[in-house]
Design a protein around this nucleic acid. Structure first.
Length: 318
DNA sequence: CAGGCGTGGTC
DNA sequence: TGACCAAGCCT
C-alpha cells in the first residue's frame, strides 16, 4: 500500500535519523525500557544530558533495579518529574526480576507501560510489527491523513494503516525523528519529508495535529515552613499522589504570623505555586516531621520547588 | 474519560 | 510573559 513511502522513510532515516542516540545503538530490552519511560513527556536533551547514563550506572540491569530501595530510585529520578514513573519502574522491575516479557500485551500489563510504550519496546527490542503512537507520530499522522480532530481511536487506525510491518524498528524510530525534526508543531519542512508524496496536509500543515487547548492553571499561595530543631531542618515526606515519596517543606496557607525570608513562583503542570519561605511564629508540632542536617538533606529526593526554597536558605546563611 | 501528574524550553 | 509544548500513563 505505502511501499514507496516506506522506502523513502527508510532512506531518509539512513541519511538523517538520530541513529547515534544511546538507546538506539543496541537491542537491550532493559535499557530500551528505561529510555522509553524517561522520555515520556520529556525532551530527549534532558534525558540524554542528565538522567539516562547516571541511572544506568546505578542500576545497570533489571535485577539491580529490582533489588534497589525505592528511595535510591527516586533519588536518581530527582529533577526529572512525573515521579510516578520511577515508582512504576521499580514496581515493574520487582514483578519481572530477571527479564522483561517479550510480548507487547505482557509489557502493557506492567505498571507504567501503556500501549505506545509497549509497542515501542516490542518493536525496538524484538522487531514486533506494532506502531508507536507518541506526540511526534500523532502530529505526523494527523497531517498525513489531514485529521483536524484529535481522536485517539482514529489515530491508532491511522498508525496501523501506515506502519511498515517489514521494518518496524526503522519505521517507528524514523516517524519519531520526522515529527521531531521535520514535522514540528510550529514549523514544517515538507520539501525534505519522505512522506510528502502522500501527505494530505502539506499545504496547510499547521491546521492539523494541534493539541487540544489546555485550561488555564490556578495559582496557590502557600508558606513553605522553615522549622528548626537542634540545628536540624524539619521536612515531611509526601504520602499523597502528588510528589509521592519525595521530601519537602511543610506547607501552610497564608497569611501567617512570622517572618518571610523570601519568595518564588514554581510552575507545576496543573497549578502555579506562589511560595513564601517562612519562619512561623508558632512552629507546628507535626509527627510527620523528620529532622535533617544539611548534608543529610542532600541524600534525600526533593522536588524542584523545595530545592528552590533550600537554595534560598543557603543564600541567606552564607 | 477528563484531569492529575514535573520540569525545562520556546516564542 | 503567559501559553504552549515535549518519546504518556493512570484513575
Amino acid at each position: 500500500m505505502y511501499s514507496a513511502i516506506h522506502d523513502a522513510i527508510a532512506a531518509w532515516y539512513g541519511a538523517h535519523g538520530r541513529r547515534d542516540l544511546p538507546w538506539r545503538t543496541h537491542r537491550d530490552p532493559y535499557r530500551i525500557w528505561i529510555s522509553e519511560i524517561m522520555l515520556q513527556q520529556t525532551q530527549v536533551k534532558t534525558v540524554l544530558e542528565r538522567f539516562y547514563f547516571p541511572f544506568l550506572e546505578a542500576f545497570p540491569a533489571l535485577a539491580d533495579l529490582a533489588a534497589a530501595d525505592l528511595d535510591d530510585v527516586l533519588k536518581r529520578w530527582e529533577g526529572l518529574g512525573y515521579y510516578t514513573r520511577a515508582r512504576n519502574l521499580h514496581r515493574a522491575a520487582k514483578l519481572c526480576v530477571t527479564s522483561l516479557p517479550q510480548e507487547a500485551a505482557a509489557l502493557e500489563a506492567l505498571p507504567g507501560i501503556g500501549r505506545s510504550t509497549a509497542h515501542a519496546i516490542a518493536a525496538f527490542a524484538h522487531d514486533a510489527p506494532l506502531p508507536v503512537l507518541d506526540a511526534n507520530v500523532k502530529r505526523v499522522l494527523s497531517r498525513f491523513f489531514a485529521r483536524e480532530e484529535r481522536d485517539e481511536r482514529i489515530l491508532w487506525q491511522d498508525a496501523y494503516a501506515l506502519l511498515d510491518t517489514r521494518r518496524p524498528y526503522m519505521y517507528n524510530q524514523a516517524m519519531m525523528d520526522i515529527g521531531a525534526m521535520l514535522c514540528q508543531s510550529r514549523n514544517v519542512t515538507c520539501n525534505a519529508c519522505p512522506l510528502q508524496s502522500g501527505c494530505q496536509g502539506q499545504n496547510d500543515a499547521l491546521r492539523y495535529g494541534r493539541a487540544k487547548a489546555k485550561k488555564s492553571v490556578p495559582s496557590r499561595h502557600r508558606a513553605l515552613l522553615v522549622l528548626w530543631r537542634e540545628g536540624k531542618l524539619g521536612l515531611i515526606r509526601s504520602e499523597e499522589r502528588f510528589l509521592h515519596g519525595l521530601w519537602g517543606f511543610m506547607q501552610s496557607p497564608l497569611p501567617l504570623e512570622g517572618r518571610a525570608l523570601g519568595s518564588f513562583v514554581h510552575r507545576y503542570t496543573h497549578f502555579h505555586l506562589h511560595a513564601t519561605v517562612y519562619e512561623p511564629a508558632d512552629a507546628p508540632d507535626d509527627e510527620r516531621l523528620v529532622w535533617f542536617d544539611r548534608s543529610e538533606i542532600a541524600t534525600l529526593s526533593l522536588s524542584t520547588a523545595d530545592h528552590k526554597a533550600l537554595a534560598l536558605l543557603d543564600a541567606l546563611s552564607s
